[in-house]
Design a protein around this nucleic acid. Structure first.
Lengths: 152, 152
DNA sequence: TCTGCATCCCGTAGCGGCTACGGGCGCAAG
DNA sequence: CTTGCGCCCGTAGCCGCTACGGGATGCAGA
């Protein structure tokens, strides 16, 4: 039937091949059957699971939360309420990041605009960076590092 | 004069002590003078530099960009235009992330609201995750992982 | 059948930006 | 003098991959 190599599985779900092996290593994807020579053999259920994971990752869910979602997605294990709770928590985090980023955006945009407006004696951007935050209009609160990596 | 231990420097600039040593290792902070027993000795210039770095990190600048900004901040090295260019690039990235996050937020919020509205037969959140993205109203484009770590 | 390339195997190290831990010192206050 | 904090250093861990190296296998064309 629909038996796939790892490469075809990865392509079908739109995920990097190495990422599939990584998901297997961390037990997010199950260990598949193997051919005599040791190659992985997948079926259509694996495609669905992997596509689910990919979609959840695109929406910013962390691996552990995806693990929980997958467990709740097992046929009639767990309630929709539990799923909603996880999604709500994630949504709250997304909103917090949005708020932080919006503050950064405002500060940066304002500072840069001053930069182009005045033929200033000193650089407004450097001045802003050299100024203690409490002296500033409004600051970004607990800012985040931007460690995120593009996927795709 | 104002000679400080690493702990006092860190506290003065509002940065973790270990982070200061990390910045030294990656040459973002200079190697300071040492006492006979090997302890680091800092001055007020170091406090200013470290506070500048901290502020730039809070605004989401990456280490390499901060390195460039610090070089441009040296007394009358480089123009305000160069500084502005770095800040503009960063602002563009912040805006891109903001746009991505806003899309995630919309999808999550909409899906979750359907979840609470209907006493649905199947869970809307799980359905959404199981649905190929092109079948959805509008998707998040190139989404980011949320690898960022809180600082502070 | 032989050649040659694509695909797969595995383990490990690297990315950014720290944080944490372990084991061992120095230094100052009580 | 002793206690305990502060500092020293090196290394490993966090997330979610990605990349690399060196080898084995599978398949298609000549």
């Amino acid at each position: 039937m629909g038996s796939l190599t790892i490469g075809r599985l990865a392509a079908a779900a739109g995920v990097n091949l190495e990422t599939v092996r990584y998901y297997e290593r961390i037990n997010l994807m199950p260990s598949p059957a193997r051919t005599a020579s040791g190659r992985r053999v997948y079926g259509s259920g694996d495609v669905r699971r992997l596509a689910f994971i990919r979609r959840a990752r695109e929406l910013g869910f962390g691996i552990e939360r995806i693990r929980a979602l997958l467990a709740l997605a097992e046929p009639s294990r767990g309630s929709c309420a539990e799923v909603r709770k996880i999604a709500r928590t994630h949504l709250d985090e997304v909103r917090a990041k949005l708020a932080d980023l919006a503050k950064l955006e405002a500060i940066l945009a304002e500072t840069i605009s001053r930069c182009s407006a005045d033929p200033a004696p000193s650089c407004p951007v450097l001045d802003m960076l050299a100024t203690p935050e409490r002296a500033q209009a409004r600051n970004a609160g607990t800012a985040q590092g931007f460690g995120g990596r593009a996927q795709g």
